[in-house]
Structure formats: structure tokens, C-alpha cells
């Protein structure tokens, strides 16, 4: 008998393996992130680029674009070859399927965010001290929240017209609390301010993640029945 955790990992690993085999998706996502960083760099004057708030704006925009693509892909492949029905026939609780999809999306978002952060660090001289892992931690909280809401929205929008744009329109307003919190944290970290400035923002992000993962577990069954 496999444990619930094992089942979640099996579903997540299946998705990740699909992504790794058809590497085009991951490469496109990472390139999209790089391009967002570049486009913003061209749009801002050099003095404006130095401010911590402008930099954190660029970082999160460059994270969000590939992130939205990643959550959108989590059900796209399933639909194309009608695997969704097969997945739903698995003799496991539907909430475990949600958690598996959530885990694979989080890893994809966070992974592409990590590569974007390396690129961003090189272009914007981000401090390589404790700020770097701290930024990665904030990015993980953001990736988890984006995936929690995004996986639900991706499942909701399977098969409807103009899916990509609709997914963004549905997800972005819901993400506002996370984005506000992530931007506040990164302004402190990128501006070399004392870490006490982080305050309760990471806690707010963690609460958001827990609330929406719980909502997702409770409601996912209704989406895919």
C-alpha cells in the first residue's frame, strides 16, 4: 500500500518527467523570463533601474510570466491526449491528484524562477550573501501560492476558448496579496535594508498558501467530477 505522500509524488513526477522529456516548454518559459527582465531594463532609465522597488518589480514580473505558463501547462498536456480521464480513473482520492499537480507546478515555477533569478543577479548586481537564499525562499512561497490558485484555475479552464488569456485574468486578481507581500520582502532584501523590515509579510504569504491549498483540496473534486 503506497502512502498518500508517495502517490502525490508519483503524479508530480509523471508531470515533471513529461516536461523534462519535451524540454521545449521549460526552455520557452525560462527564455520568456529572461526577455521580461530585458524588456524592463530597456524601458527604465539607468537611475530608475537602481531603485530597489523598480528591481523587485522587474524580478516578480519576470517570475510571473513563466509561472503562469507553467500552471497553464499542468492540464494542457492531459487534455491533448485525453489523459485526464485516465488520471481521474486512478483509484486515489481526487485531492491527491490536486496535490500532485500542485507539487509539479510549484517545482516548475520555482525552478524557472531560480534560473531567472541567476540571470537577474548577474544583470542587477544582487548581493550574494543571505539575501539570495532569502529571495529564493520568498520565491518558493510565491510559487506555491501561484500553483495553489493556478492549478484550480487551470482545471476550471480546460477546454474553454482563449484559455491562456482567461487563466491569467482569473489568477492575477486572486494573487494580489501574495504579490504585495513578495514585493515588500524583495524591496527590503534588494535595498539592503535591515531584515526587521520584512515584518510579518512572509507569514502572510505562508497563511495565503495554507488557505488556498486547503480550499483547493476541498473544492478540486467539484472541478473535475
Amino acid at each position: 500500500m503506497r502512502t498518500a505522500l508517495g502517490l502525490v509524488w508519483t503524479i508530480a513526477w509523471k508531470d515533471l518527467r513529461c516536461e523534462l522529456r519535451a524540454a521545449g516548454g521549460i526552455i520557452t518559459m525560462v527564455l520568456l523570463g529572461f526577455l521580461v527582465v530585458l524588456v524592463f531594463s530597456f524601458c527604465l532609465e539607468s537611475a530608475a533601474r537602481e531603485s530597489a522597488s523598480a528591481r523587485s518589480g522587474i524580478l516578480w514580473a519576470a517570475f510571473l510570466f513563466p509561472g503562469l505558463v507553467a500552471v497553464g501547462r499542468s492540464f494542457e498536456g492531459e487534455k491533448e491526449v485525453q489523459c485526464l480521464e485516465g488520471l481521474l480513473l486512478c483509484p486515489v482520492d481526487r485531492s491527491l491528484i490536486y496535490l500532485g499537480k500542485l507539487l509539479s507546478s510549484t517545482i516548475l515555477c520555482w525552478g524557472s524562477g531560480l534560473v531567472v533569478l541567476v540571470f537577474f543577479t548577474a544583470l542587477y548586481n544582487v548581493g550574494l550573501g543571505w539575501e539570495w537564499p532569502a529571495l529564493l525562499g520568498i520565491m518558493l512561497l510565491l510559487a506555491a501560492g501561484l500553483s495553489a490558485v493556478g492549478t484550480l484555475a487551470a482545471a476550471v479552464t480546460v477546454g474553454v476558448q482563449a484559455r491562456g488569456a482567461l487563466l491569467s485574468v482569473l489568477v492575477l486578481p486572486l494573487l494580489v496579496p501574495l504579490l504585495v507581500a513578495a514585493a515588500r520582502c524583495s524591496v527590503v532584501l534588494l535595498g539592503s535594508e535591515p531584515w526587521s523590515g520584512l515584518g510579518l509579510w512572509p507569514v502572510l504569504m505562508a497563511i495565503y498558501d495554507v488557505v488556498f491549498v486547503a480550499v483547493g483540496i476541498a473544492i478540486f473534486e467539484f472541478v473535475v467530477e
Partner: peptide
């Protein structure tokens, strides 16, 4: 109806968190 209901519930849960985050901000 099912999909819209799911989004209706998720949206309602989000509103107080949005208010809290903007208020802190």
C-alpha cells in the same frame, strides 16, 4: 455552473486577504 461556483467560492475567500495585504502595505 460547477466551474463558476468554484471560482465564486475562491474569489470570496480571497477578498479579506486582499484587504488585509493592501492595508498593511
Amino acid at each position: 455552473a460547477r466551474l463558476a461556483a468554484v471560482y465564486g467560492v475562491v474569489g470570496w475567500v480571497d477578498v479579506p486577504i486582499v484587504f488585509l495585504s493592501i492595508w498593511w502595505w
